[in-house]
Computed example of a mutant assay.
Amino acid sequence: MAISKAQVAVLVVVVMAATAMMSPASGAYTGCGQTRKVTVQNLCGHDLALSEFPVANSAPLFGPGFVLRHGTHAEFQVCSWTGSVSAPEAAPVEFHVGPDGGAWYQVSNTQGGRVRVTVTPHGYPLQGHCPAAGCRDHGQCFAHAVPGGNCHNVDELKIIYYAP
Protein backbone atom coordinates (compact mmCIF):
# COMPACT_ATOMS: atom_id res chain seq x y z
CA MET A 1 0.00 0.00 0.00
CA ALA A 2 1.50 3.32 -1.05
CA ILE A 3 1.39 6.41 1.10
CA SER A 4 0.06 9.54 -0.55
CA LYS A 5 1.80 12.92 -0.39
CA ALA A 6 -1.07 14.22 1.74
CA GLN A 7 -0.60 11.38 4.26
CA VAL A 8 3.15 12.06 4.40
CA ALA A 9 2.48 15.77 4.94
CA VAL A 10 0.08 15.00 7.81
CA LEU A 11 2.61 12.60 9.34
CA VAL A 12 5.35 15.24 9.15
CA VAL A 13 3.09 17.81 10.85
CA VAL A 14 2.23 15.34 13.63
CA VAL A 15 5.91 14.44 14.22
CA MET A 16 6.92 18.12 14.22
CA ALA A 17 4.18 18.97 16.71
CA ALA A 18 5.23 16.12 19.00
CA THR A 19 8.86 17.20 18.74
CA ALA A 20 7.96 20.81 19.52
CA MET A 21 6.37 19.70 22.78
CA MET A 22 9.74 18.36 23.94
CA SER A 23 12.27 20.84 25.24
CA PRO A 24 15.63 20.10 23.68
CA ALA A 25 17.45 21.72 26.58
CA SER A 26 15.72 19.72 29.30
CA GLY A 27 14.57 16.59 27.50
CA ALA A 28 11.34 16.92 29.47
CA TYR A 29 7.77 17.32 28.35
CA THR A 30 6.93 21.03 28.33
CA GLY A 31 3.27 20.91 27.39
CA CYS A 32 2.40 21.41 31.05
CA GLY A 33 -0.48 23.59 31.93
CA GLN A 34 1.49 24.46 35.07
CA THR A 35 5.10 23.84 36.03
CA ARG A 36 5.89 22.31 39.40
CA LYS A 37 8.65 23.28 41.80
CA VAL A 38 11.25 21.20 43.62
CA THR A 39 12.71 23.20 46.51
CA VAL A 40 15.79 22.09 48.45
CA GLN A 41 16.56 23.90 51.73
CA ASN A 42 19.64 23.60 53.94
CA LEU A 43 19.13 24.02 57.71
CA CYS A 44 21.79 21.48 58.77
CA GLY A 45 24.45 23.89 60.05
CA HIS A 46 27.00 23.50 57.25
CA ASP A 47 27.19 23.65 53.46
CA LEU A 48 25.97 20.57 51.57
CA ALA A 49 27.39 19.10 48.37
CA LEU A 50 24.27 17.68 46.71
CA SER A 51 24.12 14.86 44.19
CA GLU A 52 21.26 14.00 41.90
CA PHE A 53 20.32 10.92 39.93
CA PRO A 54 17.62 11.74 37.39
CA VAL A 55 15.88 8.80 35.70
CA ALA A 56 13.07 8.29 33.18
CA ASN A 57 14.36 10.99 30.80
CA SER A 58 14.39 13.63 33.54
CA ALA A 59 16.81 16.48 32.95
CA PRO A 60 19.29 17.40 35.70
CA LEU A 61 17.94 19.73 38.37
CA PHE A 62 21.28 21.26 39.27
CA GLY A 63 24.14 19.22 37.80
CA PRO A 64 27.44 18.03 39.31
CA GLY A 65 29.33 20.09 41.88
CA PHE A 66 26.24 21.83 43.28
CA VAL A 67 26.76 23.12 46.83
CA LEU A 68 23.81 24.41 48.84
CA ARG A 69 25.01 26.89 51.44
CA HIS A 70 23.76 26.65 55.03
CA GLY A 71 20.63 28.73 55.60
CA THR A 72 19.74 28.93 51.91
CA HIS A 73 17.37 27.18 49.54
CA ALA A 74 17.26 26.53 45.80
CA GLU A 75 14.15 26.24 43.64
CA PHE A 76 13.93 24.21 40.44
CA GLN A 77 11.00 24.57 38.04
CA VAL A 78 9.99 21.27 36.42
CA CYS A 79 7.13 19.90 34.43
CA SER A 80 7.88 16.37 35.51
CA TRP A 81 10.89 14.91 37.31
CA THR A 82 11.83 11.45 38.56
CA GLY A 83 14.97 10.42 40.40
CA SER A 84 16.78 10.98 43.67
CA VAL A 85 18.69 13.70 45.49
CA SER A 86 21.28 13.00 48.17
CA ALA A 87 23.77 14.71 50.46
CA PRO A 88 26.71 13.29 52.44
CA GLU A 89 25.63 11.75 55.77
CA ALA A 90 21.92 12.03 54.85
CA ALA A 91 19.41 9.50 53.59
CA PRO A 92 18.69 9.75 49.86
CA VAL A 93 15.32 11.16 48.80
CA GLU A 94 13.62 9.38 45.90
CA PHE A 95 10.68 11.12 44.25
CA HIS A 96 8.54 11.78 41.22
CA VAL A 97 6.54 14.90 40.42
CA GLY A 98 4.24 14.48 37.44
CA PRO A 99 2.97 17.05 34.95
CA ASP A 100 -0.54 16.49 36.32
CA GLY A 101 0.48 17.27 39.93
CA GLY A 102 0.66 13.63 41.02
CA ALA A 103 3.64 12.69 43.19
CA TRP A 104 5.34 9.83 45.00
CA TYR A 105 8.32 10.13 47.34
CA GLN A 106 10.27 8.14 49.88
CA VAL A 107 13.05 8.69 52.39
CA SER A 108 14.09 6.62 55.41
CA ASN A 109 12.43 7.51 58.69
CA THR A 110 15.12 5.70 60.71
CA GLN A 111 17.85 8.26 60.06
CA GLY A 112 20.83 8.37 62.37
CA GLY A 113 23.50 10.33 60.49
CA ARG A 114 24.86 13.83 60.97
CA VAL A 115 22.20 15.23 58.63
CA ARG A 116 18.46 14.56 58.74
CA VAL A 117 16.14 15.09 55.77
CA THR A 118 12.41 15.43 55.15
CA VAL A 119 10.34 15.66 52.00
CA THR A 120 6.96 17.39 52.07
CA PRO A 121 4.47 18.08 49.29
CA HIS A 122 2.73 21.44 49.04
CA GLY A 123 -0.34 22.33 47.02
CA TYR A 124 -3.82 23.65 47.51
CA PRO A 125 -5.65 21.56 48.24
CA LEU A 126 -3.50 18.44 48.41
CA GLN A 127 -5.53 15.37 47.59
CA GLY A 128 -4.97 11.74 48.52
CA HIS A 129 -2.29 10.49 50.91
CA CYS A 130 0.37 13.24 51.24
CA PRO A 131 2.20 13.04 54.60
CA ALA A 132 5.61 14.49 55.34
CA ALA A 133 8.30 11.79 55.08
CA GLY A 134 11.69 11.42 56.75
CA CYS A 135 13.15 12.93 59.93
CA ARG A 136 13.76 16.49 61.04
CA ASP A 137 15.69 17.92 63.96
CA HIS A 138 15.20 16.73 67.56
CA GLY A 139 14.37 13.17 66.43
CA GLN A 140 10.93 13.97 65.01
CA CYS A 141 10.22 11.41 62.26
CA PHE A 142 7.30 10.93 59.92
CA ALA A 143 6.21 8.37 57.31
CA HIS A 144 8.93 6.91 55.11
CA ALA A 145 7.11 6.65 51.79
CA VAL A 146 4.14 7.66 49.71
CA PRO A 147 4.27 4.96 47.06
CA GLY A 148 2.05 4.56 44.05
CA GLY A 149 1.49 8.22 43.29
CA ASN A 150 -1.49 8.55 45.61
CA CYS A 151 -0.66 12.19 46.39
CA HIS A 152 -2.26 14.67 44.00
CA ASN A 153 -2.45 18.39 43.31
CA VAL A 154 1.22 18.90 44.23
CA ASP A 155 2.60 22.29 43.18
CA GLU A 156 5.87 21.96 45.10
CA LEU A 157 7.89 19.14 46.61
CA LYS A 158 10.11 20.50 49.39
CA ILE A 159 13.24 18.70 50.59
CA ILE A 160 14.75 20.09 53.81
CA TYR A 161 18.07 19.08 55.38
CA TYR A 162 18.38 19.50 59.18
CA ALA A 163 20.99 19.09 61.91
CA PRO A 164 19.98 16.28 64.32
Rank of each mutant, 00 (worst) to 15 (best):
114 R>S: 15
105 Y>S: 01
17 A>S: 13
102 G>T: 13
37 K>Y: 11
162 Y>K: 05
89 E>D: 14
121 P>N: 04
18 A>Y: 08
157 L>S: 04
22 M>V: 14
74 A>H: 09
23 S>K: 07
4 S>E: 07
13 V>S: 13
143 A>L: 09
38 V>E: 02
61 L>W: 05
2 A>P: 10
122 H>N: 13
63 G>H: 01
90 A>K: 01
96 H>D: 11
104 W>C: 09
120 T>N: 12
9 A>E: 15
160 I>P: 00
158 K>M: 11
79 C>I: 03
128 G>S: 04
84 S>C: 00
152 H>G: 05
146 V>G: 00
133 A>L: 12
93 V>E: 00
143 A>K: 09
68 L>V: 05
150 N>F: 14
49 A>E: 15
29 Y>D: 05
110 T>G: 12
96 H>V: 08
78 V>K: 11
40 V>D: 06
131 P>N: 07
36 R>D: 00
3 I>M: 15
85 V>H: 01
113 G>M: 03
120 T>Q: 14
126 L>C: 04
5 K>D: 14
43 L>Q: 13
30 T>L: 09
96 H>Q: 13
3 I>A: 14
94 E>H: 11
76 F>H: 06
149 G>F: 05
27 G>N: 13
117 V>H: 02
32 C>S: 03
144 H>L: 03
21 M>H: 08
106 Q>N: 13
41 Q>K: 14
154 V>D: 02
117 V>N: 05
2 A>R: 12
106 Q>A: 14
13 V>W: 11
137 D>K: 08
30 T>A: 14
107 V>K: 09
35 T>H: 11
21 M>T: 10
138 H>Y: 15
101 G>S: 03
71 G>H: 08
78 V>P: 00
9 A>D: 13
78 V>Q: 03
76 F>R: 02
53 F>Y: 12
119 V>Y: 09
68 L>F: 05
13 V>G: 08
21 M>P: 00
32 C>E: 05
52 E>S: 07
18 A>H: 10
134 G>S: 06
55 V>I: 14
4 S>Q: 08
156 E>G: 01
158 K>P: 01
51 S>A: 14
32 C>L: 06
109 N>A: 13
132 A>L: 12
62 F>L: 01
149 G>K: 02
123 G>L: 07
65 G>P: 00
24 P>K: 15
150 N>A: 10
30 T>V: 12
109 N>W: 02
163 A>M: 07
95 F>T: 02
6 A>N: 12
145 A>H: 04
21 M>Y: 10
61 L>N: 06
75 E>P: 00
153 N>A: 07
78 V>M: 00
35 T>C: 06
